[in-house]
Design a protein around this nucleic acid. Structure first.
Length: 494
RNA sequence: GGCGGUAUAGCCAAGUAGCAAGGCGGCGGUCUGCAAAACCGCUAUUCGCCGGUGCAAAUCCGGCUGCCGCCUCCA
C-alpha cells in the first residue's frame, strides 16, 4: 500500500499519485504583518514532514511557500508603527526563516512574495474579468461568487448558509455580499501599483493563485496550510483559479489542525499566541519537533510548557539509548537495512502518522536493550533523521574550553594532593585515548581523559575528588553515569 | 443559529469491527561508594452518555451532552 493522504476536498483518505516528477507542493505561508508563532511553525513542520517522506519514497519535490506581504493588516501596522510596510514584512520573514532553520525545517524551493508578483496578479484579474467572473467597481475588482457553481465545495458550505453571515463593509461596493476583492483601490498614503483599474493593490487570496500558477503550473499535486485557511482563503483561491483556467487546481488539500494556547486557538490578530522566537529560547529544535510529531498533524495541538517538558523527557529516552549505544559500539554507522521498515512505512504512508511512527522507534529501543544489536541502534538513528531530528555530533573543532577548564582544575588538585603517580599515568592515558579516538573531537578526548582519571580515583576510593569531577562535568552539562560495566557520559541538553 | 471537528488511563496520544500501540508520570525491583541514569515488571475488563445493527463495536447507525473551531483577519 502506497502513500495515502487525507484530502479535505472529499473529506477522506485517498491514494496519493503525483501528476509527475517532481511532486509539486504549494504551502500557504504567512501574511507577514506580525511575528511568527508556534502555529505557523506547525504548518511549516507538516510541509517538512511531507517533503521528507516524499523524498524517502523516491520523489523529487518542488515546494513553494508564499509570503503575503501586502494586505490590509500590514498597512494598518505601517500606520501604527510609522514603519514602512516592506520593513515590517522583511523583519517577520527574517524571523520566520531563522526559526525554520533552527528547527531543521527543510526550506521550500521558493518563497515568492505577493508584492513581487503584481504583474501576474493583474494578468490573472484581467483574465477573470474577461471571462465574466469578475467586475470592477470604483477601482476595486470583485469576484462574482454566484457565477461559480462549485463555490463552497472545499469548505462544505452552501451559498445560502454563507448568506446569513455575510456583510458588506461600508467602504465596499460589491454587487453581492458574498463577492470578494481581487484588487483593491489604494487609499491615500497606502502602497499601490498601477493597474488597468487605477492605483491599487491585490486583495487577499489572489496572490496564491497567481504565484502557484507561475511556479507550479495551473494544476499541481498538493496544497497545504492551516485548517483555518479553508474558508475563506482556500475556497476563494480555488474558485478564482478554476474560473480562470478551467482546469483542476490542487489535487490534494492537506490541512493541519491549529495550535491552542490555554484552550484557545493561537491567533496573531487577537495577540493570543506564543512567538516561536521565545519558545526557541526555552526548548531545543528536537524537543519542539518531538512535541509536534507526537500528535497527528490533523489534530488540535495544545501548546503548554508541561507538554514541551514531556516531549523533552520522551526525547531523552531515545537520545540516551543512542548515546549509550554509541558508547558500546564505538560507532553506530549507517544502516543499509533499517529494521521494522515495513511497520514504519505503513505508519507514515497512513497520512503521515508520526505518532505511530514514533511508537515503532520505542519498540526498537526495547528490542535494542534485549539484544545489543548495532543495527537496531542504527535503525533508530535512521528513523530519527528521517523524521527531521537533528543528530548531535561532537564534531572536530567543537569548542572545548569548558572541559579543558575542568581538566586543568583537576590537575591542580592532584598536584596539591601529591598524586604524582596518577599524574604520570594521565600522560600515558592521554596518548592512548587520542590514538583510539582518532576521528573524535578534542572535546570528546578531554572528557574521556577526565573519565579515565575519575575511574582511577574511584578505584582508590577517593570519592571526594571523583565526585568533584562528576559535579564539574555536570556544571558543563555533561552527565556521568556509573554503570556496572564502567562509566559513560552524555550531554544533558536535548 | 448554520456548518465542521473532537471526546480513549493521572496527563499526552495511536487505533474506523475480532482479545485497547506508544510516551510522560507513578509504584515495585535490579545495578550501585553515593547520586543519577539505565534496565526489568506493574499501572484502562474498558474507550463522553443513551439506544440500535452485527457472532463480534472504541471502531458502523440514530439520539444526547461537553469541548474546540469556522461562518469577519488568521498556519
Amino acid at each position: 500500500m502506497g502513500l495515502r493522504l487525507y484530502n479535505t476536498m472529499g473529506g477522506k483518505l485517498e491514494d496519493f499519485k503525483p501528476l509527475g516528477d517532481p511532486v509539486r507542493i504549494y504551502t500557504c505561508g504567512l501574511t507577514v504583518q506580525s511575528e511568527p508563532h508556534v502555529g505557523h511553525i506547525r504548518a511549516a513542520m507538516v510541509r517538512d514532514t511531507l517533503m521528507r517522506w516524499l523524498g524517502h519514497l523516491g520523489y523529487q519535490v518542488v515546494a513553494l511557500e508564499n509570503f503575503t506581504d501586502v494586505d490590509d493588516k500590514i498597512i494598518e501596522k505601517q500606520k501604527e508603527q510609522n514603519k514602512d510596510w516592506r520593513m515590517i514584512a522583511q523583519d517577520n520573514i527574517d524571523t520566520y526563516l531563522w526559526a525554520c532553520d533552527r528547527l531543521n525545517i527543510e526550506r521550500a524551493t521558493f518563497y515568492p512574495r505577493a508584492s513581487q508578483h503584481i504583474q501576474e496578479i493583474i494578468d490573472l484579474v484581467a483574465r477573470l474579468i474577461e471571462k465574466g467572473f469578475a467586475y470592477e467597481k470604483k477601482g476595486d475588482v470583485y469576484f462574482r461568487v454566484r457565477k461559480f457553481p462549485d463555490y463552497g465545495k472545499l469548505s462544505k458550505k452552501t451559498i445560502d448558509e454563507l448568506m446569513s453571515g455575510a456583510r458588506i463593509a461600508p467602504t465596499e461596493s460589491k454587487d453581492d455580499p458574498l463577492d470578494f476583492a481581487l484588487w483593491k483601490a489604494a487609499k491615500p498614503g497606502e502602497p499601490y501599483w498601477l493597474s488597468p483599474w487605477g492605483r491599487g493593490r491585490p486583495g487577499w487570496h489572489i496572490e496564491c493563485s497567481a504565484m502557484s500558477m507561475r511556479y507550479l503550473g495551473e494544476t499541481f499535486d498538493i496544497h497545504t496550510g492551516g485548517e483555518d485557511l479553508i474558508f475563506p482563503h482556500h475556497e476563494n483561491e480555488l474558485a478564482q483559479s478554476l474560473a480562470a483556467t478551467g482546469k483542476p487546481f490542487a489535487r490534494f488539500w492537506m490541512h493541519n489542525g491549529w495550535v491552542t494556547l490555554t484552550g484557545e486557538k493561537m491567533s496573531k490578530s487577537t495577540g493570543h499566541y506564543s512567538p516561536i522566537k521565545e519558545v526557541l529560547e526555552k526548548y531545543s529544535a528536537n524537543v519542539i519537533r518531538m512535541f509536534m510529531l507526537k500528535t497527528h498533524y490533523r489534530k488540535q495541538l495544545a501548546y503548554d510548557d508541561e507538554r514541551l517538558d514531556e516531549a523533552r523527557a520522551a526525547l531523552t529516552t531515545i537520545k540516551t539509548y543512542l548515546d549509550n549505544a554509541a558508547n558500546i559500539f564505538r560507532e553506530i554507522g549507517k544502516t543499509s537495512e533499517p529494521m521494522m521498515l515495513d511497520s514504519f512505512t505503513e505508519a507514515m504512508n497512513d497520512d503521515l502518522n508520526t505518532s505511530k511512527a514514533l511508537s515503532i522507534i520505542y519498540d526498537l529501543i526495547r528490542k535494542g536493550h534485549e539484544t545489543d544489536d548495532v543495527n537496531i541502534a542504527a535503525s533508530v538513528e535512521y528513523y530519527m533523521i528521517l523524521l527531521g531530528f537533528v543528530k548531535e555530533s561532537s564534531a572536530p573543532g567543537e569548542p572545548c574550553a569548558d572541559v579543558m577548564t575542568v581538566l586543568s582544575e583537576v590537575r591542580k588538585r592532584l598536584h596539591k594532593e601529591g598524586k604524582r603517580e596518577l599524574l604520570n599515568e594521565i600522560a600515558g592515558d592521554c596518548v592512548d585515548i587520542m590514538e583510539s579516538k582518532g576521528s573524535s573531537g578534542v572535546r570528546t578526548i578531554v572528557i574521556d581523559l577526565l573519565m579515565a582519571i575519575r575511574s582511577k580515583l574511584r578505584k582508590e576510593k577517593n570519592y571526594e575528588l571523583a565526585d568533584y569531577i562528576r559535579q564539574r562535568l555536570l556544571d558543563n552539562n555533561i552527565i556521568v553515569d556509573d554503570q556496572s560495566g564502567g562509566s559513560t557520559f552524555r550531554s544533558g541538553a536535548v
